[in-house]
Amino acid sequence: MKPKRRFRSETLMLIPLYVFTLVFVLGPLVYMVILSFLQRAETWGVTNEFTAQNYAGILEPVYLNTFVESFKLATLSTLLIILLGYPFGYFMAKLPNKWKARMMMLLMIPFWTSSLIRLYGWIIIFRANGILDKVLMGLGITDSPLKLLYTYPAVVVGMIYALLPFMIFAVYSSAEKMDWSLVEAARDLGASRIRAFFTVTLKMTLPGLLSGVILTFVPSMGLFFIADILGGNKVVLVGSLIQDQLMKAHNWPFAAALSVILTAVTSLLIILYRKMAGVKDLEGLV
């Protein structure tokens, strides 16, 4: 009697969600795929002729290399973010409740300002004779300016800065739910602190860690403005490439083809991560 009725009302409530997904997620995605098989028009827009030319174009070394570079940068950034973010989230979960709330607040505050504006702040820090150089030289650690702005390390720092909070939040939410008596049980059964960490804590927080990896790795493949602002023209990533093709070269089909490949690669990686870890549900992600 009741279940059927409830089923119907639940379905009704889900309709906006489906509509939203269809219009704003699936729609653009399909449009992008279609676009990627069309040809660029002489002046503006596209012609309705089917071609696989755009995908063939990606195989040119110049573009393939961009993919490889992006992948390397994303991997490096993600590794560093794990090293910084995992302990941060882990220890944050062990703080008394009052301090948890305070830390959460401190992590949220930067989000009140546009990330673009915050990145410009790094220019002031990194530029020759900027804050960083002045501090290092003042302390006698270096004797000449490092000139970090528009270098690879500057881009990596920017990536870490922009994406670290997501790793912290993901690990924290996993560690917060952790039953610490399991660690005590492991210790009690003869595990050293390190063994207990690797056999119990890490396994229990793996869903958080993996969602953190996805939340940092996927965006760092595509984030173009960090490389643009802090890397100048020296570091070209897939994201920047797509943006250039779209905004400067007006080659929409090629930009679409690049996007399709980027989406495919990242989706594949997500599937791989999940297979690898045997984790069914990722923290905060489906």
Partner: peptide, 9 residues
């Protein structure tokens, strides 16, 4: 342990 603390994974 009172909660048994079996490793769920």
């Amino acid at each position: 342990f009172q909660s048994y603390a079996l490793f769920p994974h």
